[in-house]
Design a protein around this nucleic acid. Structure first.
Lengths: 165, 165
DNA sequence: CCAAATGTTCAATTCATATTGAACGTTCTG
DNA sequence: CAGAACGTTCAATATGAATTGAACATTTGG
């Protein structure tokens, strides 16, 4: 029977995969969430049984997406990563950006329709409008959730090493 | 130089792919949007240069997801498909469902943490809460956008065959 | 009833991408 | 300075999913 930790890590991997991402990236995120403190690439490779290359690539991918933060631990030579306070928010931010980009692109294409395709053009523009409005709505939700647990909000707890010793 | 129609179809294919779906499914959707009227599987195969199997499978996939509606054209032997009024909404509905399922699963796993992992458990539960709240927010937006252009709202126009003759 | 047309399904293939092993450059450490 | 530790990159592989061709069942029209 797998431990809850293992199950959670496996689940975040599957979730990330279901959302169109890389399985290992999700596992790394889950791992850092349960750990609750900075962990090195070596930690990941042995905890998740993955190659050094995968750990490096996926961690940096997550870092660029804003789900992970690279921290320098004093007295520690290696880089370390930790999950940001609300990792899911970053995914939504990316989603909003994609939606807006989609809207832009579709609207650009819509302008290319000729005079006798007015109906098609209208439908295409309506389609684009939906993406633009959804992006705006995402922003609203992101701002809402970011306000309470903002990037500079005191978390009140910063432990994590004390457990599972 | 490609026509605007072609560009749009190609773009919806890429978009769908970027969102983790099948390219051809997106192309079918784009095709039906520009057409603005029911089209058969044969229409799709020749317009999109795809196999009969792909047309059938992907169309039915989109139908199950609620982006397409199968309509019986009078005097027409073949089945025909048309895009529903706001196809994007259905994607969001699916997203909300996935998020809620994620939340359920993570919360279930969270209950499996032992006493000495209280910190980890709290972080995991917080993670789940985000998905649950986001799902609720999606629902809100869906209901909002569905109210105005509801499933029973008169669209006012149902042409589409008159163009690009 | 027969032949053509239509839609579905499934195994096979193609295709894209995730993952890895190995080589490299860099930085630390003794 | 020499050697180890570390992180990155890239070509190669493995993995999984999308797409297809072919076979099948069903329906239609002659």
């Amino acid at each position: 029977m797998p431990t809850a930790r293992e199950e959670f890590i496996r689940q975040t991997g599957l979730m990330t995969q279901a959302e169109g991402g890389a399985r290992i990236a999700g596992q790394i995120l889950g791992y850092l969430i349960v750990e609750g403190a900075p962990r090195t690439l070596s930690d990941m490779t042995e905890a998740l049984k993955i190659s050094k290359a995968s750990a490096s690539t996926n961690a940096r991918l997550l870092e660029m997406k804003g789900l992970l933060r690279r921290v320098a631990v004093l007295g520690q030579r290696q880089d370390a990563f930790e999950a940001v306070p609300m990792p899911g928010v970053q995914s939504l931010i990316g989603m909003a950006q994609r939606f807006r980009a989609h809207a832009d692109e579709i609207e650009r294409i819509a302008r290319g329709f000729s005079e006798d395709e007015a109906g098609a053009r209208a439908r295409v523009e309506e389609f684009a409008a939906f993406y633009r409005q959804s992006a705006a709505f995402f922003d609203e939700w992101i701002e809402n959730v970011t306000r309470s647990q903002g990037p500079f909000a005191a978390t009140g707890e910063k432990e994590g090493d004390d457990e599972h010793a």
